[in-house]
């Protein structure tokens, strides 16, 4: 029952850092209680927070790269899309920062990240986790 209570508990508010400490395009690891999160500032200035360790072999995702997901409709063409992904520093798996899902295997639960609300409040990056 304890775990159920925990799961249903309202998310707690965590202050990650000051706005200036997380520049657009950057990611950093943040501990929210027992959880490790990757907190990301997208190029256009909004924030995302996801599970901080990769479901593959547990690399620290914040050490990877945040980018607009590459897409294409024709062989040979590369288009930068609106979807943002974090690319793992080790084997380069991608995870969608809005959904936490792998673009390659969106149906695979064990290959996804949990997502958390991340916002700017009074000049501070705040995560609800």
């Amino acid at each position: 029952m304890v775990s159920r209570v925990l799961r249903d508990a309202p998310p707690r508010r965590y202050v990650v850092c000051a706005r200036k400490d997380l520049a657009p395009g950057e990611a950093r690891t943040f501990r929210a209680g027992s959880r490790s999160l990757a907190v990301v500032c997208l190029e256009e200035g909004s924030y995302r927070a996801v599970t901080g360790t990769c479901p593959h072999e547990a690399a620290s995702l914040a050490k990877g790269k945040v980018e607009k997901m590459w897409t294409s409709e024709t062989a040979g063409e590369h288009r930068s899309s609106e979807r943002c992904v974090i690319v793992c520093p080790w084997h380069n798996f991608e995870f969608d920062l809005d959904t936490g899902l792998s673009p390659c295997e969106p149906g695979r639960k064990d290959m996804s990240l949990r997502t958390y609300r991340a916002v700017l409040e009074d000049g501070e990056v705040v995560v609800y986790a």
């Binding site: 294409s72 024709t74 380069n92 390659c104």
Partner: peptide
């Protein structure tokens, strides 16, 4: 390899 290198061949849509 697709999980790792999809970005090179984004026109490939599935596993």
């Amino acid at each position: 390899n697709y999980r790792s290198l999809r970005r090179e061949v984004p026109w490939v849509k599935r596993m």
